[in-house]
Write a protein that binds this DNA or RNA. Sequence first.
DNA 1: TTCTACGTTCAGTAATTTCTGAAGGCACTG
DNA 2: CAGTGCCTTCAGAAATTACTGAACGTAGAA
Lengths: 154, 154
Amino acid sequence: MTDTSPGGLDEVRSDFIEKVGLIAQNEGLPRIAGRIFALLLFDGEIVSFGEIAEGLQVSRGSVSSATRLLEDRGLVKRVGKPGQRQDFFRLADNPYRNMLENVVTGLDRARGEIGDTLRQLPQDRPEIRKRVQDYARFYEVMGRAISQSIENLD
Amino acid sequence: MTDTSPGGLDEVRSDFIEKVGLIAQNEGLPRIAGRIFALLLFDGEIVSFGEIAEGLQVSRGSVSSATRLLEDRGLVKRVGKPGQRQDFFRLADNPYRNMLENVVTGLDRARGEIGDTLRQLPQDRPEIRKRVQDYARFYEVMGRAISQSIENLD
DNA sequence: TTCTACGTTCAGTAATTTCTGAAGGCACTG
DNA sequence: CAGTGCCTTCAGAAATTACTGAACGTAGAA
């Protein structure tokens, strides 16, 4: 029998999964992606495609797109099992490093777009250039900070 | 006459405003908030409530809620003008510092929620605890990095 | 006081995004 | 070769979020 008592492990687990779902949503990811990540993180095991769909009570279509998203971001790894036709998943080896790198990528993109504006601005409007430059600098500073923090993870 | 020629300042300006609107959306803010921020940043002037609504072609209701959001986050400042009933706005003094602080706040919140889970986890499941702890650490590392980067802004 | 200009609120609408579930295609099995 | 189980795709449904615009309250002007 699984531990479903109040405050028991199962409740902690499902609370965690829901929490991470909401955090993911806050960060602009589909909620299901966050839940899958949390499930793999909490259980720490290799879990099959079907178990994810059933365990989270979501459609296989959703599992398909969410796992691919997580895979693309390097947060989750798809693995095969000999003699098994199903796909299996586990946490990626370095999910947090990849998360940080994804954040940096997003910041670089924003900075790049602002840089485009800067390049289009005439030299004889230094006040505008200054302000746009400051904005670009914001993304640059934050990106650099996060890049450097990657090594602090382990 | 304003410069509306292709590649002219007006076009750069409106492209910039739209770009920042999309960036804001990416970061989970209403698009209009990003546009207002961009307008104030680009023009660098004190702009009235009505001018914002008209200039961006959005309803006064939207201007009201977006400006309040930006005000709450410390990105924009509402100022009065003597003898004027309208509200006026300008960029905040230290918008980027405040942006970074807002990010840190969000990270702290996420870390706190994961910390709650950690506290509920029994000691006899060290493997689970380890994994959840690593996840919390991710938010901690990123938050610290950004906090420290605040001083690099100027 | 009454009038007017203003910002805010909120109910409803619009737009966007997420999720579902059925159809489809592929690969393995027997 | 047919049958089965699997993942993906995609059209549509559901849910969420942003936005509008009218009603409202307030404060200054006349």
